[in-house]
């Protein structure tokens, strides 16, 4: 899941980014509206955390611009973060195309909960549990289990599995994974995707059984929607 954090308060943007990275998201940071819009045009973000009061171009204008010209097939979710808490401000923000609204100062767990909610809205599932075959992933508790046995994953592996579990049975290319699971600091020419998918596959495979993630040569990877035993 690729997230863009936009805030002109450098200290705040960095703290949010740090916290979200720990939750397994790939996070980029922008400090003004123009930079944010430029990045949103280049990268198909899953979520944008957008501050409203910013120099150059304010958050509402960025939000309108993103909604007005859908560059990517999947438009990003937009979570507005702002110190303005009047009802008309919230209404204006939501009318500009934001999906949710959070008033500063907020408790960080609330931010991550809202991020999780926004991320699963299209998955049509409820709650924080994702289930594909015998794999269960709890986005809130940050835990994964295979047939009831806990599996310990790094945050990158967790993010990768969560992305796979959002689209079971669909072939996902290396480039897509790089766009949605890694942030802008990842080098597109390394084999980091291949390596991480490999370790993830090893960790979720039960000895003697078929691995749930298969490689489709020339196309990418696929999480098999195997029936639970």
């Amino acid at each position: 899941m690729r997230v863009l954090v936009v805030d002109d308060e450098v200290d705040l943007a960095q703290a949010i980014a740090r916290g979200l990275r720990r939750e397994g998201y790939a996070v980029d940071v922008a400090h003004d509206g123009e930079e944010a819009l430029e990045k949103a045009r280049l990268t198909p973000y899953d979520l944008i955390c957008l501050d409203i009061t910013m120099p150059k171009m304010d958050g509402r204008a960025v939000c309108r611009a993103i909604r007005a010209e859908p560059v990517h097939a999947e438009p990003p979710r937009i979570l507005m973060l702002t110190a303005r808490d009047e009802i008309q401000d919230r209404v204006a923000g939501l009318d500009d195309g934001a999906d949710d609204y959070l008033v500063k100062p907020f408790a960080f767990p609330e931010l991550t909960a809202r991020v999780r909610t926004l991320m699963r809205r299209d998955a049509a599932s409820t709650g924080s549990l994702l289930r594909v075959g015998s794999i269960t992933l709890d986005t809130a508790a940050h835990s994964v289990s295979r047939s009831g046995d806990p599996v310990s994953l790094t945050s990158k592996e967790f993010a990768l599995l969560r992305y796979f579990m959002g689209q079971p049975g669909v072939v996902i290319s290396q480039e897509t994974l790089l766009e949605h699971v890694w942030d802008e600091n990842a080098d597109p020419f390394t084999n980091t995707v291949r390596v991480t998918v490999g370790t993830l596959r090893r960790k979720v495979t039960i000895d003697g059984e078929e691995p749930p993630i298969e490689t489709v040569i020339g196309a990418g990877y696929r999480l098999l929607d195997l029936p639970a035993e």
Binding site: E9, D11, L12, A15, I16, R18, G19, R22, A83, R84, V103, K104, P105, F106, A107, F108, P109, L111
Partner: peptide, 21 residues
Amino acid sequence: SHELRNPLAVMRTNLDVTLSD
């Protein structure tokens, strides 16, 4: 109140993120 919220948010988020790690 709006102006005071910004530094408050900076402090709160930084503390939340660091303390929960």
